[in-house]
Design a protein around this nucleic acid. Sequence first.
DNA 1: GTTTGGGTTGACTGATCAATCAAGTGGCGC
DNA 2: GCGCCACTTGATTGATCAGTCAACCCAAAC
Lengths: 203, 203
Amino acid sequence: MSDQVLSTADRLAFAAMKLFAEKGYGSTSVADILREAGANSGSLYHAFPTKQDLLLEVLRRYRDGIRQMLLEPAWRGTEDPIARIFALLDAYRAMLVASEFIYACPIGALALELHEPDPAVRALLAANFEGWTAAVEDCLAAASGRLPRGADRRRLAQFVLTVMEGGVMQARTHRAIEAFDAGVATLADYFDRLREAAERERA
Amino acid sequence: MSDQVLSTADRLAFAAMKLFAEKGYGSTSVADILREAGANSGSLYHAFPTKQDLLLEVLRRYRDGIRQMLLEPAWRGTEDPIARIFALLDAYRAMLVASEFIYACPIGALALELHEPDPAVRALLAANFEGWTAAVEDCLAAASGRLPRGADRRRLAQFVLTVMEGGVMQARTHRAIEAFDAGVATLADYFDRLREAAERERA
DNA sequence: GTTTGGGTTGACTGATCAATCAAGTGGCGC
DNA sequence: GCGCCACTTGATTGATCAGTCAACCCAAAC
């Protein structure tokens, strides 16, 4: 059944995706991936020259699937662009809770795990962050009327990512959602103050 | 010389501190630590039962040395409590630049590398974050006159840590300081708005 | 029916890992 | 000067690691 609908390469990529998110890159052995995917080592090395090439494939899939895998589910039923930003943050909150604070953003975890990554890996990590902030920046552009005139939307979008990643790190460390929620609440307070400043500006 | 002033256990702990910061825990082999410290494996396992006990010792040293190793150097010449918060952030900026964006906060890196840490390790990571935010909270308390009346100082201190860690992650990933600076600048903008709100409150 | 080749099988290799241990060494108490 | 023990030495262990390879399978091509 599922052996038929998914190629071995796909099953290996999905297995690697899952295990890298759960345990990290270094702590996931090739044997782990083979077990999870139900494949043999020869098949893996037929599809991917090295373990790192499997990581590259995983990062490409995250980058290319951000809309389908992340944004669309998070934004279903939410139209307001600012609300969408917080809906996105809420998706990470849900990941944290569902995994009992083990993981939430696989990109961030890999970014800090790999201290001196291969340039190709580093570039794909950066591309993932870039896609994320671009999506948030689009929301901010759609809500530009509620922001002060000179607001740097790119910088603000980066700041949203900063707050998410910092919050995820603390929630994982404390095995509690509090610090993540506090970060989101403080960010919301900042956005409120920006909105008020924009209103005052117009008057 | 230095063989005399530092015990083998100390040299091992400092070597582990350096290497865990540079390469992470998993990517640092016991052999690496022995080479760096100029010791033999028997000596290491005489002082520390396992590699993880060495990690615990490193985390204890960070926790107990936060004032001497981090706060005092960062705050030398800075008295104003809000300025001290940004001086602290500037110390991390300097670490990022000096290491060519390889590392800055060893605690944060370990927190994301170790997905399912031993409870003792997790507790020490949390204690390190706790000490950091407590120091920032003290600054905020000393500057409470410049904050709105109902401001949650603990939450704000956590937010400063959030922004620092998120900024470090992005700077490392992009191998550029821009995202870190942008996060700090946005945080400064938030603090400005809080101060303005506090002034309006008093009027 | 034979050939061809993408894909698979799983035992295997050599490197590297954390950890062990028997044999020391040197300083201190008595 | 003898015994004691904290500490050191470095070869060694067994586990685990990423990666290899010769043999094999089977469907499509002709």
